[in-house]
């Protein structure tokens, strides 16, 4: 499959580095562009453009880490910081706007109430994203 643009939503989890490396190695074959994005979810009680310093600082660290990981893999990544009410629609919107062919997302397998839960954003992306989606679950250890 020919890939031109890959979107990697980051969340600060332990698998971020791995999915960035994976995206870079997949992108290298077809010289595709890699976009890493972090979405700050703003509570509905606040205006959407409210800048929450602690969240912004955290997002900057995560995206800088993503840039460093890509640099170590000898590849360029373009990073973006978004604010939205929910991460899912923001990821899909970003994928549509950028004409992304592949979204690589990290997830964890949890069963909070005895029911497997991959997270709201993952379900939304799986349901709505028009492109391919690759889910990555880190090793349990």
């Amino acid at each position: 499959m020919a890939i031109k643009n890959i979107l990697v939503p980051t969340n600060g989890g332990g698998a971020d580095g791995e999915i960035i490396k994976l995206a870079c190695s997949l992108a290298r074959r077809s010289k595709a562009k890699v976009y890493a994005v972090y979405i700050i979810e703003v509570e509905r009680s606040l205006s959407l453009d409210t800048q929450v310093d602690s969240e912004t600082e955290k997002a900057e660290k995560i995206l800088t880490q993503a840039e460093d990981t890509a640099a170590e893999a000898d590849y360029d990544v373009e990073t973006d910081l978004l604010q939205a009410r929910d991460a899912g629609p923001a990821i899909v919107n970003e994928a549509v706007e950028r004409g992304v062919d592949l979204i690589i997302m990290a997830t964890t397998y949890k069963k909070p109430h005895g029911v497997p839960d991959l997270g709201k954003a993952v379900y939304y992306v799986l349901k709505e994203a028009p492109c391919r989606v690759l889910l990555y679950r880190d090793s349990v250890s």
């Binding site: 939205a84 929910d86 629609p89 923001a90 919107n93 549509v96």
Partner: peptide, 14 residues
């Protein structure tokens, strides 16, 4: 796919 009415996004400068 189109964003729903309440789906708004802001791109922050890094």
């Amino acid at each position: 796919w189109r964003p729903k009415l309440g789906d708004k996004f802001i791109r922050r400068p890094r």
